[in-house]
Design a protein around this nucleic acid. Structure first.
Lengths: 340, 340
DNA sequence: GATCATCGTGTAACTAGTTACATCTGGCCC
DNA sequence: GGGCCAGATGTAACTAGTTACACGATGATC
């Protein structure tokens, strides 16, 4: 109420003047580290209350060189697999004293690089990204800033990035093995868009390396639109008894398409997915799927990134296991073809 | 490579010394505002490249007083309704030059207050929160910092917080009206946990104010566990022909329970939800639900918060419309009771 | 009673970058 | 050739908070 009514936020100098002490003393009271006499302490505290003083985060950052923020660059927030992952990531990071800044890339490498620059300008101390393929601009950025980065949803110990994730090829093979064990011989593989998605590419690559199986590959549009592609798939080969979908969203779309064609799942056709989304349990029939350990991945990525930032020691890659969750797939009747 | 090999990050003074100019000149080159001779500019730029100089975000914040960050406090990231919302929020905020810092509260008001303090320490310029009920600590915090806050998922023009959302009571009544129009007279209402969730409370309150209807209220556990509660619901009154679930997750659980009891949906029992999750379209039968405009809510909340921060003028509350999406509900056969 | 240690506190120099003001140089006009 | 203006650049004082060091006042020990 004196001379500075215009200025909204008070700083330490104001508090010091009000309490009749030096800024150093105020700083000591606020940080609580050094010893300050009880009477002085009380005087400073009442000054802080009177002036509604709150210390500036930026000034503290400037001195400590620490921002306690990490950035997550994900394709989208609107997908159960990423939101699960981020939920675990955020929780673990909070336990380590870090805050999470999220930015969406929408699978656009240029946008990823731009958003990464934004986050670096904010002062993030590390990144969590999805997959291995990133633009050169992004690579330059992290090399220049020497920022710790953990790449997730992918495990590759030979990558220049530190990966915490699973073997996407192995995950796809788990689904295939399950179908083969169930006696299925002619299997259709449905994959979504592969451009800018190295996880899907790795899954397809692994399946294509299995010459023993009669696999038929189909590219389908993402989401529920996959349901319309199912008719083409069945017409292309009547011997198909199982559909292997490289994501649960595609699998759910395929199941809708089969229902429309009056093909019963699993009696007439087995369907498996990859992701094991929560919703895959609540549909009917419950979808068999390869479970991806995204919650653990979030926890482990957070832990490793936090340690990397604190110690300066590059984290080590970590492989997490996927597992097949059989729910509604059934034994093929010895390769007997569907009724047309 | 000279005397400061230990120091990792170079600052403007280093660049100035290297280029043989003053810090002011470097600052001018970096900000690009004032006029600097071409030759000097080139010299400074090569110094910047040579030293791998990147300006400190915190120092800029300290001078501008701006952090260009906003915080979102949500119950969880692992729920389709919040991740949709945050996806839209993040996208719109990015267009306004803001970054989004997320923190999860897990419906714990104390945790919310703690995380809010963390975010304020980071220097966020505004908040997006869910619902109206928050701890006193949170209220004190935002009052003290005079931080702009937008409360979402709720519309209440009389609230001290600025709300951008929908009328939760009206949303529940939309579901009820739909069932009544379809001729249903005896309706069970399933609600999840209400403690610390004012959205659910508002929905229940609105339904309880409808004395004309024979509504039977049941509290059920969240998630798929809801499927086990369905048997009790049906046994408590055999005349029930429709189940109104206050969230889609509960509705999906209820549909699973009905399937186990061999009650056909919708022939024997109509089910409606509230949320209209993406997964509600891909289940069978597709779930009728009240659509909540969460994507628009994210966009509008971001827009209003950004404007509030930029102009200092308190945003105005905004009501968004919900709408009934009928997918699998059917006309009741004149209140005929189910076969036991 | 002198010496030393300790506690409380202030001074001032840091952290990194911005910017108002001063200064210097050169070109142009009269 | 003096005066004037503009462009380019430096100086130093800001932004807010931390902290090494110094100083003075106690109290305890010899």
């Amino acid at each position: 109420m004196t001379e500075k009514t215009a200025k909204k936020r008070h700083n330490m100098r104001d508090v010091a003047r009000y309490a009749g002490v030096s800024v150093a003393t105020v700083s000591r009271v606020v940080s609580g580290a050094s010893s300050v006499a009880d009477t002085t302490q009380a005087r400073v505290r009442s000054a802080i209350d009177a002036l509604n003083f709150v210390p500036s985060a930026a000034a503290r950052v400037i001195n400590s060189g620490r921002s306690y923020m990490v950035g997550a660059l994900v394709p989208t927030l609107d997908h159960a697999i990423f939101s699960r992952f981020l939920d675990a990531l955020e929780r673990e990071l909070a336990d380590h004293g870090f805050s999470l800044v999220v930015a969406t890339t929408h699978d656009d490498p240029d946008r990823e690089a731009r958003r990464a620059q934004d986050l670096l300008n904010l002062g993030v101390e590390g990144f969590v990204v999805s997959g291995l393929s990133h633009s050169d601009a992004f690579g330059d950025l992290i090399a220049r800033y020497k920022t710790p980065v953990i790449a997730t949803s992918y495990f590759d110990p030979s990558s220049p990035l530190v990966t915490v994730g699973y073997d996407n090829g192995a995950a796809a093979l788990r689904a295939l093995d399950h179908l083969v064990e169930m006696g299925h011989e002619t299997i259709a593989v449905l994959s979504g868009p592969m451009r800018d998605n190295d996880r899907t590419r790795a899954r397809v690559r692994a399946l294509k390396r299995q010459p023993a199986q009669a696999l038929q590959f189909h590219d389908v549009p993402m989401g529920l639109a996959a349901s319309e592609s199912v008719e083409d798939v069945l017409q292309s080969d009547p011997r198909v008894t199982a559909i292997l979908c490289l994501s649960d969203v595609i699998a759910q779309g395929a199941m809708n398409g089969l229902r429309r064609l009056d093909v019963r799942v699993p009696e007439d056709m087995s369907v498996v997915g990859v992701d094991d989304l929560p919703s895959s349990q609540s549909i009917w029939p419950p979808l068999s799927s390869v479970h991806l350990p995204v919650t653990r991945m979030g926890t482990c990525a957070a832990e490793r990134l936090a340690r990397w930032i604190e110690t300066g020691e590059r984290a080590r890659p970590l492989e997490l296991e996927t597992r097949m969750v059989a729910r509604s797939t059934v034994r093929s009747l010895d390769g007997r073809a569907r009724e047309p």
